[in-house]
Design a protein around this nucleic acid. Structure first.
Length: 304
DNA sequence: CTCCCTATTCTAGAGTTAGA
DNA sequence: TCTAACTCTAGAATAGGGAG
C-alpha cells in the first residue's frame, strides 16, 4: 500500500474517534513532513519502511530542521501510532518505530520575577489611566486575572460572565481535556472584574456572553492574547524571561510556593491531574527556590 | 499614511490520560 | 507504574482591517 493512502486510512480512523481539532492538526502536520521526506527519498509504499529509514527521518528532523528533543519525541510517537494502526489492520508486519528509543529532554522554564510583574502592572496601569480605552482596561484586567488565577490561555478567552460568581467569588473553568472545575477568586480581582463589566456595559450597551471581548464586542481570541504578550515583551524587554500567558501561570505557582503555600493545594488550584506535574515546577526554578530553601532551612541558623 | 489589533498557518513544546 | 496516545499552548511569519 502507498504510504499516502495508509496515512489517509489512519486519519479517517482518528477523525471517527472524535479527537480534538488540535490533535488531528498535529497529526496532519507531522505526516505532511514525513510524506515530503519519503517522496524525496523515493520511498513509496509502506513495505519499504524499516527502522533504519524511520531513524533517518528523525535525524533529518534533528539535524536539518533543528527540531529539539520534545518535538522529536512527539513526532516519533505520532509515527508509532500510525504504524501501530497499520499493524493492527494487518497492512504491516511489525512496527518499524518500536525499537527506537526516545530522546532525553531537559525542560527548563523561566518565569517572571516579582520585580518584572510589578513593572508590567505599573505599565498597564499607567496606560489605563492615561488613555482609558477599552483595550487599556481590558488588557489590565486580563493580566490581573492571569496572575491572580493561573488560568491557561484558552481557559481565559473562553470565560463567560455566567461562569463568574462575583458574590461567591468563584470562577468556573472549562479547561484542558474537556473538563470543568471551579476556582476561587481574590477580592481584589473581583473588584477589577466588576469594573471591567461596568466598562463593557457603558461601551456597548449590552454584555457579550464572553468576559473578554474585542472592539466589536466579539470574543477575544487566543491569538489576540498571544499578540498582547508579544507586544508586552517588546515594551518590557526582559532579557531572560519568556513573556506569555503561560508565564503568568508559572508565576502564580512560583509565588505560591515561595510564599509558603503547600503544594497539594496548589496542585488543586492549578487543576493539575497529578501532583507530579506540580512538583516539576519546583524543579524548574531550582536556584530561586534553593535560595528560599537556605533561608528557611533550620540548619542555616544553627552554629555548625 | 502609520499604528495597533486581529486572524491564519505552520512548527515547536508542555501537560494529561488510559490501560496494559 | 510505565508509556503510548491524546490534548493543549507557544511563537514565528504573514496578511489585512480600521482608527486617527
Amino acid at each position: 500500500m502507498l504510504i499516502r493512502y495508509a496515512i489517509k486510512e489512519f486519519m479517517i480512523e482518528r477523525e471517527y474517534q472524535n479527537l480534538s481539532k488540535n490533535t488531528i492538526k498535529a497529526y496532519e502536520m507531522t505526516f505532511k513532513t514525513f510524506l515530503n521526506w519519503t517522496d524525496e527519498q523515493e520511498i513509496k509504499i509502506i513495505q519499504d519502511l524499516n527502522t533504519r529509514k524511520v531513524k533517518a527521518f528523525l535525524s533529518y528532523l534533528k539535524n536539518e530542521r533543528n527540531n529539539n528533543p520534545t518535538s522529536l519525541n512527539t513526532k516519533h510517537r505520532q509515527l508509532k501510532a500510525l504504524f501501530n494502526f497499520l499493524v493492527s489492520e494487518e497492512l504491516m508486519d511489525s512496527n518499524p518505530a518500536d525499537s527506537i528509543k526516545k530522546v532525553k529532554e531537559d525542560i527548563k522554564i523561566k518565569t517572571f520575577s516579582d520585580k518584572e510583574v510589578k513593572e508590567i502592572l505599573s505599565y498597564l496601569r499607567r496606560i489605563k489611566r492615561r488613555e482609558d480605552t477599552l483595550f487599556a482596561v481590558r488588557n489590565h484586567t486580563i493580566f490581573l486575572t492571569l496572575i491572580g488565577t493561573g488560568l491557561r490561555a484558552s481557559e481565559l478567552t473562553s470565560l463567560k460572565w455566567s461562569d463568574i460568581d462575583l458574590i461567591q467569588r468563584t470562577l468556573k473553568v472549562f479547561g484542558k481535556n474537556r473538563r470543568e472545575q471551579t476556582v476561587p477568586l481574590s477580592e481584589m480581582l473581583v473588584r477589577e472584574l466588576a469594573y471591567w463589566r461596568e466598562y463593557c456595559l457603558n461601551q456597548f450597551g449590552d454584555l457579550s456572553s464572553h468576559v473578554f471581548v474585542n472592539q466589536q464586542n466579539k470574543p477575544f481570541s487566543v491569538n489576540g492574547l498571544k499578540c498582547f504578550f508579544k507586544r508586552l515583551s517588546q515594551v518590557m524587554e526582559f532579557p531572560e524571561t519568556r513573556c506569555s500567558a503561560h508565564s503568568c501561570r508559572h508565576y502564580f505557582a512560583k509565588s505560591w510556593i515561595q510564599n509558603g503555600g503547600d503544594i497539594s493545594t496548589l496542585s488543586k488550584v492549578l487543576r493539575h491531574s497529578s501532583i507530579k506535574t506540580t512538583e516539576k515546577y519546583l524543579h524548574f526554578w531550582g536556584n530561586e527556590v534553593a535560595e528560599d530553601y537556605d533561608k528557611f532551612n533550620p540548619l542555616s541558623r544553627l552554629p555548625l
